[in-house]
Design a protein around this nucleic acid. Structure first.
Lengths: 223, 223
DNA sequence: TCAAATAGTAACAACTTGATGATAACATAT
DNA sequence: ATATGTTATCATCAAGTTGTTACTATTTGA
């Protein structure tokens, strides 16, 4: 699921945008000002930000510039003014798109979807879990910056567990998700792959481990 | 210089858009219909396309879908209607943005600039990736300043991989992008070309390599 | 404490997959 | 026509991956 950050000091707009996007199936985080927005970005992986221009202390342009310095996610500006100057200023600070208030929900949804389709997949293709980093597109696993090459099944298993950390999955569930519904084999197969993963990472310092919940299944536990 | 393709059957709009964008410093190519647009894309490297919805024979939606099958460049739709349905249809066919006629020149410029800043590097003529340098127009590859002359297919394969470093592509995907959708041949063909590339660069010092991800595909990994 | 249930492990064999070299088809230039 | 270079295909080999089995270890609870 993709995550969208909303930065707006206006309660009404904030909850309006939140409702629209949540109904569309996005996970939404809200921030009442620029500082809070930056803090949120620092702790959560976001795929896109919706930023209001008019905010006290740090306005939308400033916030956009600040975000651009560190993060590389698409930004939509909300503006009450339709003046051309605003558009230029917005572009200069690094906006990808803007919406003029009042806007139609469909309009917001279109622009969010369009930007995300093309670009916003940071949280979908990368997993960052403490010392564990997984790049799905590159089939690459890093632990404390040491790169591991895993066989496909082990990679898929680790990736699935890491997508839902601290959650226990039965062998049946894991087989269904990774091997597919038509897999006819033994559930012990999962045990063996878990073993291989543990073995592979045995010698390295890390802040996670694959835990066995006897009688239930496995989970990737993050300390 | 970035290249923009305009597809519109209306002479007036075509030359209007052309003027606006040329004044902004872009190289502009024009096509009077969908077929001509596809042909142009086939022979020229374009960074962005501005497509009118209302065109005879092949309308803007169709053209967008066709472009999407092969190319990966941002598309802006021009529409005379502001109906929501159009927006949805446009999104489904793969549009990145749209403009409602009549539009302000500044508005067009903003959207073109915003899209190009983020995605518009298709006509980027060189790639610099550590010790690897590729000049697309000159079909020239340099590694540590040593020049290599590659056969076309090898060049295209290397260039495609280098455009998306550290990303794994299936043989099917590579064939689609380099050989085209109508290639009927064996996927093993990719293996052979990969082998030739490796062989060719085997004796030279370099900070990249073509990695095999068993069961998935290949990626150009940069150290 | 002991038996039953459950999980961990090692070794193995079947299976996939990729690398490679040879070859033929094709194109191009001489 | 001939030589040269490019490209696709195929068969074969080598290597890596995967699932199974049998056995061991651990936990649980009667």
């Amino acid at each position: 699921m993709k995550t969208i950050l909303i930065a707006d000091d206006d309660d009404y707009i904030r909850s309006l945008v939140k409702d629209i996007l949540m109904r569309e199936g996005y996970k939404v985080l809200v921030a009442e000002n620029g500082a809070a927005a930056l803090e949120t970005l620092n702790t959560e992986l976001c795929d896109l930000a919706v930023v209001d221009i008019m905010m006290p202390v740090m306005d939308g342009y400033e916030l956009t510039s600040e975000i651009r310095k560190i993060y590389d996610l698409p930004i939509i500006l909300l503006t009450a003014k339709s003046q051309i100057e605003d558009k230029e200023k917005g572009f200069e600070s690094g906006t990808d798109d803007y919406l003029i208030k009042p806007f139609e929900p469909k309009e917001l949804i279109f622009r969010v979807n369009a930007l995300l389709r093309r670009y916003g997949n940071a949280s979908e293709t990368n997993i960052n879990l403490g010392s564990l980093y997984i790049n799905k597109k590159g089939y690459e696993v890093k632990i404390n910056n040491k790169t591991f090459m895993l066989p496909l099944k082990e990679f898929e298993l680790l990736t699935f567990l890491a997508t839902h950390p601290n959650q226990v999955f039965s062998r049946g569930h894991l087989i269904e998700k990774i091997w597919g519904l038509d897999f006819e084999g033994d559930e012990r197969t999962v045990d063996v792959h878990i073993k291989r993963l543990r073995e592979r990472f045995a010698s390295i310092e890390k802040d996670f481990s694959i835990k066995t919940i006897r009688g239930v299944g496995y989970s990737l536990e993050v300390l």
